[in-house]
Every structure is written in C-alpha cells, then in structure tokens.
Design a protein around this nucleic acid. Structure first.
Lengths: 344, 344
DNA sequence: CGAGGGGATGTAACCGTTTACATAGACGGT
DNA sequence: ACCGTCTATGTAAACGGTTACATCCCCTCG
C-alpha cells in the first residue's frame, strides 16, 4: 500500500499541492476553511510528507548528525540524553554514529552523513577540528565537542577544561595529605586524556612533588583494574587518580581485591562525575562535569547556526567542579561541598 | 559553495549522469576505464550523493529508526551500542528518538520518522504492538523490543522473559534461606515491570510463601533509594529484589545509610546485569540479559526484512541468566556460577 | 464606475537521483 | 555482407515535495 502523497491530499481536498504545502508548513496566508479541510483530509489519509522529497526541495533535513568516538558507558549515555533533549525540543531528528575512535573512519562517517543533516555535532578527541573539517570541505556547519584542537578554530567548540579539572583533583589529594599520588592515564592519542595528564603533572609540580607514577589505561573499567594492580605491584601509592570515572571504579575493585581500604589506605578519584559515581562504595571523588548539559548546549548551538544566527562566538569551556566524596576523604569538613554536587 | 551534484561529475568525466550513478552503485556493467575516470572525478570534486534525492528516487533511505522509551543509564547505552554495531556493519544510518515513555508521543514520533527510515526498531513497554502499528498503517516494517503485547502479533519481536528471570531470582533468594523477600516494582504501566512482579509472586507462591512486600519504584536509582527506605520502615525484609539494577543500586545505598550489612542483614538482587552491576559493592546478584546482543539481533532482523527475506519467524525470547554475586550470598559454593557470568 | 490593491489559490519549474528503455558499436556466425 | 547479440552508454521520465510567479476575485476609494 503506497502511502499518500501531497497530490493525493490535494486532490481529495480539492486544492492544489501548493496550498497543501502551505497549510502544512504553517506559512503564508491560507483561508481558514481551506486550512481545516486540508488538515482533515491529510489526517484521514494519514499523510506524512516524504522526508527525502522535502529535503530535496527545501534544502533542509531537520536532522542533526552526531558523531561520537564510542557509545560505551554512562558518559555517552548522558551526553546523548542531553542532545536528544535538545533535538526533540526543536522538532529535529537525531542521526547518531560512532567513529570507533579512528580518525579515518570518523572522516568517512562525516562524508556519509553530510548530505543527510543540517549540521553536525562531533566529538573526536583524536583529531583536531581542522582535520575534520577538511573532510567536509565547506559543507555542513560543524560544532565540536571537546576537540581541543578546534578551540579558536573556525568551528564553535564546547570543551571541558581537562587541565583545570585534573589540577584541582590532584591538588585536593595533596591538600588532604597524600604524598604518593599515582595517575591512571587514558588512551595515549586522546587529547582530553593528555590534558588530564598534564593537569596532574602541573599540580604535582606546583606542590613541589616530583614523584610521578603513571599507569596506562584506555578509559574502560577493565583497564582501570589492570592499571591499579600494576600500580600496587610497583611503588605503593597512597592515592590513585584515574583519568575517568570508569577506570576509577575499576580501580576500586582492584583495591578491594588487594584488601586495601579506601580512603584509609589509598584515596581514589576519577573524572566526569557520571551518575553512578555517587553509588559506588565508597562514593567517588571526581571532577564533575555537567555532561548532559554540555550536550544540550552544543545542540542548541547547532540549532542557532541552522536558524541563521551563525555569528557570535558560541565557544564555551566548562570548568569541572571538584566533587569530593568518600573515596578521597573521611574528613567531614568537606561534606558541604559534596552535598552541593548532589544537584543531579 | 554549493556542493557538487551528479551532473557536475558527469560533465567533468564526460559521461551521462546515468553512468555516474551506475558507477557509484557498483551496479551493471561499466567499462573499466570509465569506472576509474568517474571515481577519480567524483573524488576530486568531493562529491557525495544527496541523501534526499537518492531516497526519493530509489525509495530507500539506508536508515533504521530506533525509538526507545528513555535514554537514561547503562541499559539503554548498551542497547544502543549493540544496535549501532549492527547498523555500521551494514552501512546503515541510525536515527534515534525517545518517546519519553508516553504512548501518545511514541505514536507521533513514529509518524515523523516513517518517511525517513527503511525500518523501525521500537521499544515501547507501555503500548502493545498493535497499538503502535496502527500508528503507522502498513507503512514501514516494524521490529519490536520487549513489547510483550506484540509477541505472536504481526511484527517480529525480541523480548526478555521477564517472568522467568524474576522467578529465578526470587527462587534463588528463597533457596539461600531468605524468608521475608521484598520487591521494588517498576512503573505500574510498564509491561516488563509487571511481568517481573508476576514472576516474583509466582516464585513466592511456588515456595508456599505468601508474605509479599512490595514498594513502588520507577526504574531510577532515586526511586530505589526511596523504596528501600520505605521498606525498612515497615516490615524489615531480609532480602530485597529490585525490578532493575539501577533501583537495586539505589537500594544498596539506602541500606548503607541504615547501616545494614549486605548480604549479612539483607540480600539484594537486581535485574538486567548492566555493566556496572559487577562494580558496585557488594557486586550485584541479578538476572543477566545480553543487552547489547539483543539490540544487535533485533537490528539484524530489521536488515533481514529490508533485504527481502521477510518471511521466517524472527521472534526470539531471551531467558535471563541467574548471575549470582556477593550481594545475595557469602556462600562461596555459588562462585563458579558467578564467574561464568563474567563472560562479557 | 473603473482602477488599484491585496488576499487566496493555482501553475509549473526545480531540487538531485535512479532506472526503464533506447541506441550505438563491435563482433561472431552463416 | 547481413543479422542478431551483447556490451557500454545515453535519454528522459519519474520520485514528492517547495516556492516564485501568475492569476483571479473581491473590495475600496477617488
């Protein structure tokens, strides 16, 4: 059963296709009786405009393309939730894709999406904005998430101040008396991970501590477990700061295995403040980032560009909030700050 | 800068648009020198076919629509990951939407998506398949996820045997000596939640226990915390079975607050086996469901239908696996089963 | 009473592909 | 030499909307 076209509606309502189109796009002046007649007929025929035809004629797709490096875990879940909130508020569709962390594949996906979206929201911590945008020469508007290379470039960028967040966490660990603070790094080629590492080092240096202990991870819990085990075998740290919450959670598991108490023997901190961070035991100290909110704002930026107001500097850098929970301190004097973070 | 069209390519390669189209669709017989010339030109011009025009002419969109009731938490994160694995393996696009749990809105979204996808994957625990499919009369092929109403209906359905899973968990709690087993229910109008409740009751009845304690939740951690607190105020249970893992995790938090030991004082179990379930303390006993795998299989089913092989009964019911972890037992004799669940 | 104006609607070109059908060579067989 | 086949390519008609422009009608005003 071929579905109804605008011509079917026009015929049944005894008007031209132009009028039907006008009614459906709420535009121009159409007489009231005509409007309701057309709407009634359209409804009866269960008419839905053909998206392809519409985009062909109007050069709009009402769709935002989203490209993420991965979809694993709560970080991306939250991000997508924020983005979806935006798209559905604006009546836009959301075309989702994943680049598997490979810049090559990211470029390929961008090309494939290009003709199907009005704008793209891209998070690619492995390539800078220039590289990506060359993958789609002057095509679709591009908004970047956390691709530090893009800041100051020619695409709006929404980024997290990874350096500041990592610095704050490390400083907090130092302040609370930790002296052998180890770091579990993220993927080596990940710009954000690199920034967090820099922040960690800078904080140690600022405190006059030069004892770095660094283990390599890849942002997964599994790697957090492995990295923590390794750290425990070598020089025993009295604090472990993982470059993201998932690894910190893996870390907690490894410490439990080793029968070390947290924070008694070893303090632990993560980064991101994913929802589950407050539910692990002990609850995780972390650098809190309003993940869903970032997604939402970046999406709003896309919309602003599409709707024409493409001037203005839409760049925004989010400074993580230090969220102190039980994994780093038993000291109750910090609790108020912890509570402030329960804002959801 | 208007992007290149097939006509630009045809002109530059000195062939007709038909030939360009044939080359790009790998179809028919085109002479080798022509093929490479066209590809070279297309590449130089950075040509990407216009998705709308293509779908208009070919009646394919190479896109699968996915409608989920929510995007919160690891359950959906995993599901999307599985689905994405399928779409990218088949070179398809993924159009994602959320129905906010409202059947009305679900129907509206379905209509909006209809003309932009080749098939739809819908999870709507609030409405049965018939209701949904009437929302898109004979339009796009529909594959259902967990909409029990659809089983045996005219749409392929991938479902979890919620009753069996809940029965197994409850039976396990009984077997390990628990006598006052409380249940934290999911949303009242959620079919899956209702089935899990039925399973709980059936298991109690089968064991000759008639002491039901039921608290209402809504699948969020917050509601798990609240429900557990309430249960602790009324008749103190020696086990709490939450209808999903998120609520079970909330439950653990409430028990910690109340300074009750798990599993010493109260055993806790959840449902779904989301990735984080094994990382909470104590690790969560749960009904394990291969979430990503279900997403992937359902997606494959969509693809099979699109590609023509739409016969065959693609229905599939997944029976959850009992995953026993520390939250329900200190008894190490169960450990082998627990380890088996670490399959990933 | 005619001209002018403005509101409602129709006409038809156009958007960029795909694809059925037509055509033009080349080649082999008789 | 002619005809049929086959291969490679071109021609042009859809596909289903949007929208600039044309048209028609009715009303108002000088």
């Amino acid at each position: 059963m071929r579905s109804a076209t605008i011509r079917d509606v026009a015929r049944a309502a005894k008007v031209s296709t132009a009028t039907v189109s006008r009614v459906l796009n709420r535009s121009e002046t159409v007489a009231e009786p005509t409007v309701s007649r057309v709407l009634k007929v359209a409804n009866e025929l269960d008419y839905v405009p053909h998206g392809g035809a519409r985009s062909l004629a109007s050069k709009r797709t009402d769709t935002i393309g989203v490209l993420l490096p991965d979809l694993h875990g709560e970080f991306f879940s939250e991000l997508i939730r924020g983005i979806d909130a935006g798209t559905s508020a604006h009546g836009l569709h959301l075309l989702l894709s994943r680049s598997h962390g490979d810049p090559q594949e990211a470029a390929a996906v961008l090309r494939a999406m290009r003709s199907r979206v009005d704008a793209m929201l891209v998070m690619s911590p492995y390539a800078d904005g220039e590289e990506l945008s060359s993958a789609l020469k002057g095509g679709v508007p591009l908004v970047l998430l956390n691709s530090s290379g893009g800041v100051g470039g020619r695409h709006p960028t929404f980024a997290i101040d990874n350096h500041a967040g990592a610095f704050a966490i490390t400083a907090h660990l130092i302040e609370t008396g930790r002296r052998r603070i180890a770091f579990i790094a993220g993927p080596a080629d990940n710009i954000e991970a690199a920034e967090r590492l820099r922040g960690y080092r800078a904080a140690l240096a600022a405190a006059g501590q030069s004892v770095e202990q660094i283990a390599q991870g890849d942002f997964t819990e599994q790697s957090g477990v492995a990295a923590a085990r390794q750290l425990l075998r070598t020089a025993r740290p009295d604090a472990i700061f993982a470059a993201n919450d998932m690894m910190a959670i893996g870390c907690l598991q490894a410490l439990r295995e080793a029968e070390l108490r947290v924070p008694g023997n070893v303090a632990v901190a993560g980064f991101d403040d994913i929802p589950v961070a407050r539910f692990v035991e002990p609850a995780l100290t972390t650098a809190g980032v309003p993940i869903a909110e970032i997604g939402r704002q970046a999406l709003e930026c896309c919309v602003a560009i599409i709707r024409g107001a493409d001037a203005g500097d839409h760049n925004r850098i989010f400074t993580p909030q230090l969220v102190i929970r039980a994994s780093s301190t038993d000291n109750s004097e910090h609790r108020p700050q912890s509570l402030a973070s329960e804002r959801i």
